[in-house]
Simulated assay, not measured.
Amino acid sequence: MSLDPTGYDALSFDCYGTLIDWEAGIAAVIGPWARRHRPEMSDEGVLVAYSENEAAVLRETPGILYPDALREAFRRTGEALGLPVTDIEADTLGDSVPDWPAFDDSAEALAILKDHYALVILSNVHRAGFAASNERLGVEFDEILTAQDIGSYKPNPANFEALERRAAERGWSGRLLHVAQSLFHDHVPAQQFGLPGVWINRRHDRPGWGATPDPQASVDIAAEYPSLMDFARDVERALGREN
Rank of each mutant, 00 (worst) to 15 (best):
D99M: 07
F13S: 09
G25M: 01
F193N: 02
G138E: 14
D205M: 12
Y8G: 12
T6I: 12
L19Q: 03
P84W: 00
S173A: 13
S227N: 06
R175Q: 00
H126A: 05
G151I: 08
L19A: 02
R203Q: 15
D205R: 13
A211D: 09
E40M: 12
Y16M: 07
C15L: 09
R136V: 03
N243L: 14
V125R: 05
D142H: 07
L122C: 06
E54Y: 10
M1P: 04
A109S: 14
A190H: 04
P98W: 00
A55V: 08
Q216N: 13
V188R: 03
R206H: 15
I200A: 15
S2G: 13
P32M: 06
W100N: 13
P215T: 12
Q181N: 07
L145W: 06
T92W: 07
Q191S: 14
D115Y: 06
D14K: 01
V125H: 03
D4C: 01
A107Y: 01
E224S: 15
A132M: 04
D115W: 07
A56L: 14
I121S: 11
D14Q: 06
A69T: 09
E161H: 14
E164H: 15
S173Y: 09
L145T: 00
P157K: 02
G151V: 02
P155R: 06
T212A: 14
A34V: 02
D142M: 11
V235N: 11
A131G: 13
L113Y: 03
L113S: 00
P196N: 11
T61W: 08
L70E: 14
A111I: 12
V85L: 14
T61C: 04
D91I: 01
G194P: 02
P215W: 05
G197W: 11
E23Q: 10
V219D: 02
P32H: 05
D220P: 08
I26G: 07
E236D: 07
L137Q: 08
A190Q: 11
S218D: 15
S182G: 04
S152D: 02
V139E: 03
F13D: 06
G78N: 02
A147I: 10
A49E: 15
Q181M: 11
P62R: 12
F130T: 00
D104I: 01
E164K: 15
R166C: 08
V139Q: 04
L177K: 10
Y8I: 14
G151K: 09
F184C: 05
S42Y: 02
A69D: 12
G194N: 03
R237T: 07
S182P: 06
E161D: 13
R241W: 09
H37C: 05
G129Q: 00
G78M: 09
D87T: 08
D230P: 08
D43K: 03
G138Q: 10
F141L: 09
E54Q: 10
A217D: 15
I26A: 10
Y8V: 11
I88D: 15
L83M: 11
P215V: 10
G171S: 08
M229Y: 12
R127K: 12
D186L: 00
P196H: 08
P67S: 01
A131D: 05
R59H: 11
G45E: 15
D99A: 05
R233H: 07
D149P: 11
A180D: 13
P98F: 05
K114L: 09
E89Q: 13
A232L: 03
P207K: 04
